[in-house]
Design a protein around this nucleic acid. Structure first.
Lengths: 147, 147
DNA sequence: ATAATAATATAGTCTAGACTAACTTTAATT
DNA sequence: AATTAAAGTTAGTCTAGACTATATTATTAT
């Protein structure tokens, strides 16, 4: 019996974007600064400060003035779920030779709307298709015609 | 040379939901009333009136007080693009035996974030997988384990 | 240690998009 | 035709989430 890891926790769309970004920064550099979050999300620093304060209130991050942000367990759970969805999608669409540079942008937004059944389908299908190079080639050919 | 039918027109997320709903109502019953839009989207009538007025200003619908709403060409283009995306997704995930009743809800939201490459991939892949019953069966089995 | 710079925070404003309550218009019933 | 019910509108409020301008704190360089 696997534990119920998939808590049904969800932030707002915007909060999920922040959480995803914060987790990425922490894993990459060890900490998440307001200035980096702002740059990566393309919004103003002051907006980030405001949002972080709201997310602290909501129990998604722990925030201390001038001392940076860390994720609460709840926040980290959501962040990991989002990252997992984004990565699953990227891995899936990479099968079809989509431009590596643009895949991430093309997917952007979908990860916030992936139900568990959809995620499970994508993951299972990815595993199968990896063993079907001929099929993948045919799909790529078709796509060339509709691009 | 095919004409550039895929205009890059986009409304906001909320506007796309309204447009999708209005088009569906018009095709189903011949007209779109505020009360039906409100019920189907689960929001208050007054909110619908307000949004429709904004969408008239934005050139997405034509609105006359007390006389209902019709789509402009721009609005219809967006609506059809959204419906097409939603249907393509539904058709795709139906391949894997997901519960017909819940597919539509599971997909909800994704259609607003589907870039052209993603759409083309899904459509091409759907065509191929229809001819791969054995592969589809294997995917279904895998999913049973992760659901 | 102080001055300059970078990072962060606060205050106040704006827009989208929802709400409720109250009013008006249209449609249906008698 | 008058009344009632249903549909639609208006007015005013609220929240999320962005913005700019200004202030404060931390950090770096001298």
């Amino acid at each position: 019996m696997s534990k119920a890891v998939t808590a049904a926790l969800r932030g707002t769309r915007a909060q999920e974007d922040y959480l995803e970004q914060i987790l990425t920064l922490i894993e990459d550099k060890g900490y998440a600064r307001v200035v980096d979050i702002a740059r990566n999300l393309g919004i103003a620093q002051a907006s980030v400060t405001g949002m972080i304060q709201r997310m602290d209130t909501d129990g998604l991050v722990t925030y201390e003035k001038y001392r940076g942000v860390i994720l609460t367990q709840a926040g980290e759970d959501i962040a990991r779920a989002i990252v997992r969805r984004h990565e699953s999608l990227a891995e899936f669409f990479a099968l079809f030779g989509l431009d590596e540079k643009s895949i991430y942008d093309d997917i952007e937004g979908i990860e916030h709307h992936m139900s568990q059944p959809i995620l499970a389908t994508i993951q299972a299908l990815t595993g199968e298709l990896e063993r079907q190079p001929a099929l993948l080639e045919r799909v790529k050919k078709k796509m060339a015609g509709s691009g």
